[in-house]
Structures are given as C-alpha cells and as structure tokens.
Amino acid sequence: MGLSLPLPLYKKLTVTFRVEPGCLGPDGADHIDGFCKYAKKAVAKLDSDFVRWVITPRYDKSLPETEYKTNNKKLDHDKAEKYLRVFDKELDDFEEHLQDKLSVLIDEYLGR
C-alpha cells in the first residue's frame, strides 16, 4: 500500500476512549479530569505513527466507551478492524492492550 509513517493527522485513526469516573473510586469525579490528562500523556506515544489518542471522561453513558474516527468520519467496528490490519494490528488485541494500560495508569495515578 506504500504508507509512509508517521501519517498526517487527518489520516490517523483517532481513538476516543471515555473513562468512567467510578474507575477511580468513590471520589472519582474529583479526579477524572486530572487522570484523563495524565493518561493522555502516558499513551500519546503508543502507535503514534498512525493513532491519535483522545482520553476523556465518560459523563454521558449513552456515548460508547471507545470510538474510532479517521478524517473526521466515524468508523464502525469492522472498519476500525480493517484500518488496524493495515498496520498488522488486531482490533481486539489493540483494545485489550489499551484497557490493560489504563488499568496500570489508574493504579499509578492513585498511588497504589
């Protein structure tokens, strides 16, 4: 396909991950904004040649936990999977890795 990395921003996969305040404990709402900034910095380098990360609080439960876009267009699960395959990534593994990383970051952030 002849991709040259890193991709320009508009071609990158924007991964929006919404973190529920409750993940940070009973007073999570007091910490969620700071944690999201902390997590964004911590994951910024992960697959950064073709992924742009957005880590944000999930105040609205009607919004999906994870959302994928490229060129400002939402991608459904199948299209996100096809996108990642170009980079030899599997969507399920990609999501699991992010979940694991965020669990570690929550522990670090809370000083556990």
Rank of each mutant, 00 (worst) to 15 (best):
F17K: 12
W53T: 03
L91G: 03
E95N: 15
P64V: 04
I106R: 12
D78C: 13
R52N: 06
K37R: 09
K73S: 09
D107Y: 11
L13H: 04
D76Y: 10
P8C: 09
D78Y: 13
L98I: 11
L9N: 06
P57G: 05
Y59N: 04
Y68I: 00
K41F: 05
D30H: 11
R18S: 00
D60C: 14
D33W: 13
C36E: 01
G111S: 09
L13S: 02
L84Q: 03
H31N: 04
P21N: 03
E90V: 12
G25E: 01
F17S: 04
F35Q: 01
R112G: 04
D33K: 14
F87M: 01
Y83I: 05
D60E: 08
D93V: 08
V86I: 15
P57N: 02
D27V: 13
T56R: 13
E81V: 10
D76G: 10
D76M: 11
M1V: 07
L24E: 00
G2H: 14
D47T: 05
E108K: 15
L13N: 00
D100P: 10
R58T: 00
K12E: 00
K45G: 03
E20Q: 10
Y109N: 07
E81H: 14
D88N: 15
Q99K: 12
E95F: 11
L102Y: 08
K74P: 04
F17N: 04
K89V: 05
D93F: 14
V19I: 13
R52I: 07
L24Y: 01
D92E: 09
P64G: 10
L105Q: 03
V15M: 06
K89I: 06
D27I: 15
D49C: 15
K69I: 03
A44W: 08
D60S: 15
Y10T: 09
F94V: 04
G111Q: 08
L75N: 00
V15G: 03
Y59D: 01
Y109L: 11
